[in-house]
Design a protein around this nucleic acid. Structure first.
Lengths: 222, 222
DNA sequence: AGGGACTTGCTTGACGTATAGCAAGTTGGC
DNA sequence: GCCAACTTGCTATACGTCAAGCAAGTCCCT
């Protein structure tokens, strides 16, 4: 029987900072790659260079570790959305230039962060019940929506037009990334070549700009 | 092909036709819902109203059952693509009407067949190695691409424009369906209401038509 | 300074549970 | 009675969780 441990001011978490981050990094990679079910704490420990018991020791349970991964991931995303929003606000460009810039930046972001996309895709397929418990993801989405709505000064008669547009931009950018091994391969497209990525980005920007603001296809911002 | 000849001449598969189809139906539902890993042959048997051993008895192994589900599913999809293509060919409408009809029909199809979408999403996340072994999916994709390319008589200077457009249409239609529990919920949208579905369909059609053919937003075909 | 008491960080062993696949058994129609 | 169509028992494997163990500090009293 342990005597009443004097828990001081902090709710100290088990494990050292370095170990916790190594475990988080490994877990993010493996959860994104294989999903929650197919990833064992044994695998996470091995990938992090610690024993199979350490992830459980540091984070309590497998579910808690997964939550921690999502939390860290969406904190990063929310920061990215904020800084992107501020950059757009400060740019003073015209609506179509701003929109093209937003799409281009978002396209590059998800291309550079496939873990983020895959984690959400896993959540989408498994019901999103864990994501539900991670507040930053709602804030990031709402903030992106508000930014898009304000920046483009969309028709006030159609208040959900911004949401539709946001869904379209995300869907257009995500699809080739998510389905490189299914649909793209069936079409004979190698989704990883810079040529395809560039063509895709151009296509998305043209589609969104022409379809939304009625402009003819414009040059990419260099 | 298999007109008169009964099952005598064909390579006999274990189990009765009725049982095999019941198992296939249950497996399709469960694999689509939970994915391959999280679905046990026990669950499939229970959902099909047979014992836990029957799925294995009828289809050999869990992997073979999964393959059979994908095969049946993509045979159906290929048929749907073919009949849709023939209908478009015979319609004699203008390009924008045809394109609007294609998008509308596809939107309705995936809304009515969420299992199909979810099965491919699971495949996309797990590497698509099983789908690779199911030929009809490539044929369906290629045929859809050819149909789109021919029907719209796209600029021959941009041969991959049809592929980009196909990816865009699919991505635009899929996204709200796949992410109703993640992104849509974060945005406060209930993706299952007829109102949203109708608004989404209109948005996609307008975006694709305006963005591709340069037409202004047109009415939905009634 | 130094040494025992205590804490932290991590490892290892053990246990209960779930699953796929196989093999032996059972049933029912002809 | 025989064969196909199942069912049920069994085995090996894998996993999450928990508890015990252990080594390396850290603190504190003298």
């Amino acid at each position: 029987m342990s005597s009443v441990a004097p828990q001081l001011l902090e709710p100290e978490k088990p494990g050292s900072r370095a170990t916790r981050e190594a475990v988080l990094d490994a877990a993010e990679r493996l959860f994104a790659e294989r999903g929650f079910e197919a990833t064992s704490l044994n695998d996470v420990g091995a990938a992090a260079g610690v024993s199979r018991g350490t992830p459980g020791y540091c984070f309590g349970s497998k579910a808690d570790l997964y939550r921690a991964v999502l939390e860290r991931c969406f904190s990063d995303v929310r920061s990215a959305v904020r800084s992107g929003r501020e950059r757009a606000l400060a740019s003073g460009e015209s609506a179509d230039k701003v929109l093209a810039g937003i799409v281009s930046e978002y396209f590059d972001f998800i291309t550079a962060n496939p873990n983020f996309v895959r984690l959400i895709e896993w959540e989408a397929l498994t019901g999103g019940r864990t994501l539900e418990e991670v507040p930053p993801h709602v804030e990031a989405a709402q903030e992106a929506l508000a930014a898009l709505s304000a920046e483009l000064a969309l028709d006030p008669d159609r208040p959900d037009e911004a949401a539709q547009l946001l869904l379209s931009v995300i869907g257009l950018c995500w699809f080739p990334l998510v389905h490189s091994k299914t649909m793209l391969r069936a079409l004979g497209i190698n989704a990883t070549t810079p040529e395809f990525l560039q063509a895709r980005k151009r296509h998305v920007i043209d589609l969104v700009l022409t379809g939304t603001l009625g402009r003819s296809p414009s040059r990419l911002p260099s």
